[in-house]
Design a protein around this nucleic acid. Structure first.
Length: 345
DNA sequence: AAAGCGGGGCC
DNA sequence: GGCCCAGCTTT
């Protein structure tokens, strides 16, 4: 059996039952693929179910507001995916009459759809012979063929796409693509792969050389940035809380948060009192204290956010104030959602 | 070519 | 603590 035949055979016996495997609806395939970008199946699954429930068709998604979409996306991360999802849904709904493009090339033009996602939709829905190259595929191919080109270098990306085109089964592209990803996720795992039960072990270069843990080769990434956040939770005389929407570049674009004082280091109560005027028009605060005893370190992939929540009580009526119940309806980062859950009047 | 973008789970 | 996950876009 060829490489692709072994993959397809293994897949037929070992595939998981996943909700988006019961359909060829391009809308649902597209939705699932966007959600699963850099995201584990187990994490994306409940979001997929909720989206399909709330937005059964691309038209339903297109009619929603961005805030609704972001709220349903809350907690899944990489929020540009949600914004692009919404943009593309409106395009498909309004300009394409609800029909997704049916070729790899046209799919690539959609916002949020890159090489992987275009290949996935084109192959799963329309049987177009485009191989998917995701993290699983990089791992399987680099090990099996012993390729030490960094998978996140331009040269590596080109090489693995070309190699994929060579080894794929164009006549069973959907099963081949699903199969190699499933194989990478379940058997040829990043750590402790099940080489003893591997149908490809006879001819796996990495295994034969005892270099399973060397592949895939990856260029190392930039180091994590430390940031210091002071959230000012302003409670006015109506017990309304001031919120703002993050605009511009950076993390959490278009999500809501409290007025934020970002500093170069951790700030004390005195330092916050002294400088909060820069971001807050506040005549006088009757009371201010730190809510969390210890600094919260919210860890993102690329940033550590050292965070203090300061409760600021004011006798004024504040603008942009919302009640505690309303607050829960806004899309917010997990860091803020956890504060809201912990906060009691 | 490199940087930026979330959050969670596993070792 | 580091690594990785059905990657894409912007600089």
């Amino acid at each position: 059996m060829s490489f692709s035949q072994k993959i397809i055979f293994w897949y037929s016996a070992n595939k998981r039952s996943l909700p988006w495997r019961n359909t060829k609806d391009p809308y649902k395939i597209w939705l699932s693929e966007i959600m699963l970008q850099q995201t584990r199946v187990s994490q994306g699954m409940p979001y997929y179910e909720r989206f399909v429930e709330q937005f059964p068709t691309v038209h339903d998604l297109a009619k929603a507001s961005e805030e609704e979409v972001l709220k349903l996306w809350q907690g899944l991360g990489y929020y540009s995916r949600a914004r692009n999802l919404h943009t593309t849904s409106k395009l498909v709904s309004e300009k394409y009459n609800g029909n997704f493009p049916n070729t790899y090339k046209e799919l690539l033009s959609l916002k949020g759809v890159g090489d992987y996602t275009a290949s996935a939709i084109a192959s799963f829905c329309f049987n177009e012979a485009q191989p998917v190259v995701d993290g699983n595929v990089y791992r399987v191919l680099s090990r099996y063929f012993g390729i030490d080109l960094p998978i996140n270098s331009t040269e590596g990306i080109t090489y693995f796409k070309a190699l994929s085109l060579k080894v794929m089964d164009a006549n069973q592209i959907a099963d081949y693509n699903q199969g190699i990803m499933e194989f990478g996720a379940l058997l040829c795992a990043p750590k402790n792969p099940y080489c003893l039960h591997c149908p490809l072990s006879d001819s796996c270069v990495a295994l034969q050389k005892g270099k399973i843990n060397v592949f895939p080769v990856k260029l190392k990434k930039a180091k994590v940035k430390e940031r210091y956040f002071n959230y000012l939770v302003v409670l006015d005389k109506f017990n309304h809380i001031e919120i703002r929407q993050r605009r511009g570049k950076g993390i959490w674009q278009n999500l809501f948060e409290f007025p934020l004082l970002e500093t170069e280091k951790e700030y004390s109560l005195e330092e916050v009192k002294k400088t909060m005027g820069a971001i807050l028009e506040l005549k006088e605060a009757s009371e201010i204290y730190q809510f969390n005893e210890k600094t919260i370190v919210h860890r993102l992939s690329h940033q550590h956010l050292h965070t203090k929540f300061w409760i600021v009580k004011s006798e004024e009526k504040r603008k942009n104030g919302v009640s505690f119940d309303k607050l829960k309806e806004y899309p917010v980062p997990v860091l803020i959602a956890e504060f809201i859950n912990a906060f009691k009047f």
